[in-house]
């Protein structure tokens, strides 16, 4: 059990660190990176790599956005197996509907009760802030 958590920690962390390199070394915007990750997820599932990786790393691969892509691919595949060609269109959204709906609903709800807050410039560590 502990090893599962550690494996998830290591793999999830490694994916994030790899993406961090891309952010810092290229001019890719976060939106492009998210899109790339989802597409990679679909691809991983399509070539049959996702399931074995999930068996080993569990949430280490399903929590990063590649898991979202893989869910779409899995949903499409299962829907095709059940209802045929129609599943190509229904599978993707059905499989990810819970996450998307929850995120959108929370967004709507919080936009009603919340408001944007002012931002602080972060302090540099170890140095006393400018005295007032």
């Amino acid at each position: 059990m502990i090893t599962d958590i550690i494996l998830a920690f290591l793999f999830g962390g490694a994916v994030c660190a790899a993406v961090q390199i891309f952010i810092d070394k290229t001019m890719l915007t976060p939106a492009r990176i998210l899109v790339t990750l989802v597409t990679i997820g679909v691809l991983l599932y399509a070539v049959g790599l996702y399931e074995p990786l999930y068996e080993i790393f569990g949430c280490g691969i399903s929590v990063p956005l590649v898991g979202f892509g893989a869910s779409i691919a899995r949903g499409v595949r299962e829907a095709i197996d059940q209802v045929g060609a129609f599943g190509i269109l229904t599978g993707g959204l059905t499989a990810t509907s819970a996450g998307i709906t929850l995120a959108l609903l929370l967004g709507l709800a919080f936009s009603i009760i919340g408001h944007g807050k002012r931002r602080n410039i972060p302090k540099k560590r170890g140095i006393r802030p400018h005295s007032m």
């Binding site: 994030c16 952010i23 929590v63 996450g99």
Partner: peptide, 28 residues
């Protein structure tokens, strides 16, 4: 965190909620 919060599904959720809260002043 940088990619640490962006890559997990938390980044997706933040993108939705932050945009929603931000656009509040422009109507529902």
């Amino acid at each position: 965190a940088g990619a640490g919060t962006l890559v997990p599904i938390s980044g997706f959720s933040n993108a939705v909620t932050s945009q929603a809260i931000d656009a509040k002043s422009e109507g529902l």
